[in-house]
């Protein structure tokens, strides 16, 4: 506690807060305690583990980029305009946050699958997303997009429009205002949104396994590999789980550093 607050906290909040922290922390400690350290390196550097980790990092990066490209305009529209039915649109966009990922996977399947709503038209173009890495990225974007939109929309609303109005009154066009004023001001929100989206993509399992399938090097990301390894080699599954935890902690830690530097 670096600063003293004028209004003290009720003392009793410490107990449930500490219990909550323990509830999250203990399972992580349990994973670390369960790791077979003597074989750890061998387990996480096996061919299939490295392939899965690499695939996870690549797809999560790709899906984060897609999330930024389509999520920023979405957040802008939601935060800066008003149109009839906006509340409904926002709810629908945020739906994947509360939807079980498996349901998201099914929805994607019946949309972009070979017999899906528009899957057949895609196939006419000569390509199919079935069982491809693209399907993995689509599943990740579906579940991760709301994280970016929520985070950025919040930042845009809190930031307000004052500086944009001033810039416009000085003659800046909408695009200039967006690039020179809105975006820099909302950057912390965008960064944390992007980090959340990346982290969510990295952990994505249900939609991927339902929509994309599971094939080494193509669609079997780290969470799928962990789930599969658990079947035959629990030690490898735990070792890989720890890798996923470490990567997630690193990503979040780096993002915090990045934010405070902004």
């Amino acid at each position: 506690m670096g600063q003293t607050r004028a209004v003290g906290l009720p003392r009793w909040v410490v107990v449930p807060a500490a219990l909550g922290a323990l509830f999250v922390l203990l399972p992580l400690v349990a994973i670390v305690a369960q790791v077979d350290w003597s074989n750890f390196w061998g387990l996480i550097t096996s061919e299939s583990s490295r392939t899965a980790l690499w695939l996870s990092l690549r797809t999560s990066t790709a899906s984060t980029v897609v999330c930024v490209l389509i999520g920023v305009p979405m957040a802008l529209v939601l935060a800066r305009t008003s149109f009839p039915g906006q509340g409904v649109v926002r709810s629908v966009v945020l739906l994947p946050l509360v939807l079980p990922p498996v349901v998201g996977g099914l929805a994607l399947l019946y949309t972009f699958g070979k017999r899906g709503l528009i899957g057949q038209s895609i196939e006419v173009v000569g390509t199919t997303v079935a069982f491809s890495t693209i399907a993995v990225v689509m599943a990740q974007v579906f579940v991760a997009l709301p994280f970016l939109v929520v985070s950025l929309e919040g930042a845009l609303r809190t930031g307000g429009e004052r500086y944009e109005v001033v810039a416009a009154s000085l003659g800046a066009g909408p695009t200039t205002v967006f690039l020179r004023v809105t975006l820099p001001l909302a950057m912390p929100g965008l960064v944390s949104g992007a980090v959340l989206a990346f982290a969510r993509s990295l952990g994505e399992f249900g939609a991927t396994v339902t929509f994309a399938g599971s094939k080494e090097g193509v669609t079997r990301t780290l969470p799928l590999e962990i789930y599969l390894q658990r079947e035959t080699d629990p030690d490898a599954a735990i070792a890989l789980a720890l890798v996923l935890v470490v990567v997630a902690v690193l990503v979040i830690g780096l993002a915090r550093q990045g934010r405070s530097a902004l």
């Binding site: 079935a130 069982f131 994309a212 399938g213 599971s214 094939k215 669609t219």
Partner: peptide
């Protein structure tokens, strides 16, 4: 093209 986790999948 895919090696699934279970029969259901």
């Amino acid at each position: 093209d895919s090696e699934e986790q279970s029969v259901t999948d």
